[in-house]
């Protein structure tokens, strides 16, 4: 049994279809990446899983249980943490407070909560210096670290990461990805949405490529990296007219 299984998932924003029948599976301990251009449905997939967007059809099974349509509050209690696009750090709270709130899904004693937070500061040593800085004063890279730490405070079995490299300088992006690789070593499964295909494929075990709400191709990183469809999804090169001619 896979840890996460999507079958025939459909979703829409109002009248606009965002996902049309997506099948996907994530095994325990894997890093799986979802690739595709803007508007392909990657973020929508994560939003459906974490309960922000109720799907219009299909199934989501987590550790065997059907979770489609549950509220975000309930999903995170089951062990799925979602670190959304744009970090979404609480701007008026300090780094420490942001991180402490990450454990809101667990019933936990104050002392244990402090201990968990200290663990995060050990995992992200750069953050310790900023523990009492307000969220809005951080740089993008620091915010991403806080977002990851906050996500990990939920002690998730499955971590959903949406565009962790967004707007970050290359050097910072590499740091972030090293941490993602480390997170997997702690036994947390990761579903990673990323525009930076090269980096994502470098740390992933498997990848899926979406286009307009559909699965185009799935496979191992090497195969995907050399696949024309993948490159086309990002940089073009495949004529619209040709594709329609084939239909």
């Amino acid at each position: 049994m896979s840890l996460l299984e999507l079958s025939g998932l459909t979703a829409a924003y109002g009248a606009v279809a965002a996902l049309s029948g997506l099948d996907l599976a994530v095994e325990e301990g894997e890093i799986v990446t979802l690739l595709g251009a803007n508007g392909a449905g990657k973020s929508t997939t994560l939003r459906c899983i974490s309960g922000l967007l109720p799907p219009t059809g299909g199934e989501i099974r987590f550790a065997g249980a059907a979770i489609a349509g549950l509220s975000a509050e309930r999903v995170v209690r089951l062990g799925i943490a979602h670190v959304p696009e744009g970090r979404r750090i609480f701007p008026g709270l300090t780094v420490r407070e942001n991180i402490l709130l990450g454990a809101s899904n667990r019933r936990i004693a104050r002392a244990a909560l402090r201990r968990d937070a200290d663990e995060m500061f050990a995992l992200f040593p750069d953050l310790a210096r900023f523990a009492d800085t307000l969220g809005w004063m951080l740089s993008g890279g620091q915010q991403q670290m806080v977002a990851l730490a906050r996500g990990l405070m939920a002690r998730p079995r499955l971590l959903l990461l949406d565009e962790p490299s967004l707007g970050l300088a290359p050097l910072i992006v590499q740091q972030v990805f090293r941490i993602i690789a480390r997170i997997r070593e702690t036994g947390t499964t990761v579903l990673l949405v990323e525009q930076n295909a090269r980096l994502a494929l470098a740390i992933a075990d498997r990848g899926y490529v979406l286009e307009t709400g559909r699965l185009v191709v799935a496979g191992k990183p090497d195969a995907l990296w050399n696949n024309e469809d993948v490159r086309a999804a990002y940089l073009g090169g495949k004529r619209l007219s040709e594709e329609s001619g084939a239909r």
């Binding site: 309960g51 995170v76 959304p84 709270l93 709130l101 809101s104 909560l113």
Partner: peptide, 23 residues
């Protein structure tokens, strides 16, 4: 912590719900 959660809700409801806070 309740006070912090209330602040979190006032700053970003969706994110607060993602963390398991009862918005």
């Amino acid at each position: 912590m309740v006070g912090k959660k209330m602040q979190a809700v006032s700053q970003d409801k969706e994110m607060a719900s993602l963390l398991g806070i009862n918005v």
